[in-house]
Each structure stands twice: as C-alpha cells, then as structure tokens.
C-alpha cells in the first residue's frame, strides 16, 4: 500500500487557510491509487505522526502548520518533528508548508535518499478579511494556494521531485506575471511582493530524482 500523510492543524487564521488549501490536494489524491492518512486538527499531534511514520511508512509526507528552523509544529503548535524524531522521515519525500523549517531541520533530514522541500524563511501570504471565514473562496489568497499546492499535485502525478519543484516555481511566476500585467487590481503590488518572497525561499534539499 502506498500511503500519503498530511497533517493539517486548524487553530488560527494561518492554519485555517492551510487546512482549506490541503482539501484541494486531498480531492486530487482521492483520484489516485494512494491511500490518504489525514491527521487533521487535534489529530495533528506528535504521537499520531510518529505512529503513522512507524507503522505505515508513507512515501510522501505533507506538513502544514507553523514552524521554526528546528521544528515543524502541529495542533496548538505542538512540536511534531524535531531533531529527536527526524530520523523517522528517512527515505521519504517531505513537503513542509511551514515557516523556516528548511533552514536547519530540512538540511538535517535531507540526504541521498531523502528529499525535503520547504521554506527557508517565513512563508507569507495575503488574505481578504471579508473572505477569511471561507478561505476556499478567497481570491486574494488563491495565487498562494495554487502555487503551494502545485508541489503536491505534481508529485501525485508521478513527476520527480525536481520536476515538481520546477512546476511550483513556474506556478509562482505565472501568478506574478498575471498580476504584473493586470493594471486594475490595487492589491497587485502587495501580492507580487509576497509571491516573489515565497518563490525565492522555497528550497529543494536532498535527492532530486525521487518520485512516488
């Protein structure tokens, strides 16, 4: 059985958006042969993550939530992954939509047979406060959602990590060009500046030839 693990806590604005964005990945995933393990809200805790990693050994692990350079966080900012249990991610493809986690932790985890994709600085995105109760309808956040989700979608389509990473960078660029060309949108400048930031801070560490 081929498993994909997704963690998606939901306890503040940022995690609520990431939670919603992940639903799109789950929709796509359910059309594939992969089996989903969805650790959402309070289930996004260290004990559950460690258990799944040990018992199911998922090929792809997608973390959503907060983070710092040395940890990936889950529900209510509980530490899911740090130096003490990072060995559980060996041989896997890890995508961490979590601030700073590629800076130190990602470097430690990545290796010849392990891939870590994540952000080496804060992951920034913009939200429309009039749509924050329905993130899936937020057009201001859409460029960030589509760009971020592209990595998982490309991997699930069977592309290599390198190809998926390039697809994601391209998606960011497509949205940047879209807003650069659109004269009527007052939010264009703010969106472009954040997209450029995220695109530049997304890094691919470790094995680049792996695929699902």
């Amino acid at each position: 059985m081929n498993y994909v693990l997704i963690t998606r806590p939901k306890f503040d604005d940022t995690t609520a958006y990431l939670f919603s964005w992940s639903s799109k990945i789950i929709d796509f995933l359910q059309k594939t042969h992969f089996n989903l393990i969805d650790l959402k809200e309070s289930k996004a805790n260290r004990k559950s993550v460690e258990s799944v990693l040990l018992k199911k050994s998922p090929e792809l692990v997608i973390f959503n939530g907060h983070g710092i350079s040395s940890t990936i966080r889950g529900h209510n900012n509980e530490i899911l992954i740090d130096a003490k249990n990072s060995h559980l991610l060996k041989l896997k493809i890890i995508y961490s939509v979590s601030c700073n986690s590629a800076k130190t932790l990602g470097v430690k985890i990545a290796g010849d047979y392990t891939t870590f994709i994540g952000y080496k600085n804060e992951f920034l995105f913009l939200i429309d406060t009039t749509k924050s109760c329905t993130p899936e309808k937020d057009e201001i956040a859409k460029p960030f959602m589509e760009s971020s989700n592209q990595l998982s979608i490309s991997l699930l389509k069977g592309k290599t990590v390198r190809e998926s990473y390039e697809d994601t960078k391209r998606k960011y660029t497509d949205w940047i060009i879209h807003y650069a060309a659109n004269e009527s949108l007052p939010e264009a400048s703010s969106i472009i500046s954040c997209l450029i930031w995220d695109r530049e801070n997304l890094v691919l560490l470790g094995s680049e030839d792996k695929s699902l």
């Binding site: 503040d12 604005d13 940022t14 958006y17 907060h66 983070g67 710092i68 966080r73 900012n77 601030c99 700073n100 804060e122 992951f123 920034l124 995105f125 913009l126 939200i127 429309d128 406060t129 009039t130 924050s132 201001i140 007052p186 939010e187 400048s189 703010s190 954040c194």
Partner: peptide
C-alpha cells in the same frame, strides 16, 4: 509609503507571528 497603498481589506499572514492589517 508602499504599505499605505495596500487595500484595507487585506491582511498578511506572517507565519507563527500571526496575521497583520
């Protein structure tokens, strides 16, 4: 000066620091 041009209905999510008007 550049931030002042940002529409009032937009907030920025800055990771674990929160969201900011």
């Amino acid at each position: 000066t550049r931030l002042k041009t940002m529409p009032a209905n937009i907030k920025m999510s800055v990771g674990s620091y929160g969201t900011f008007s």
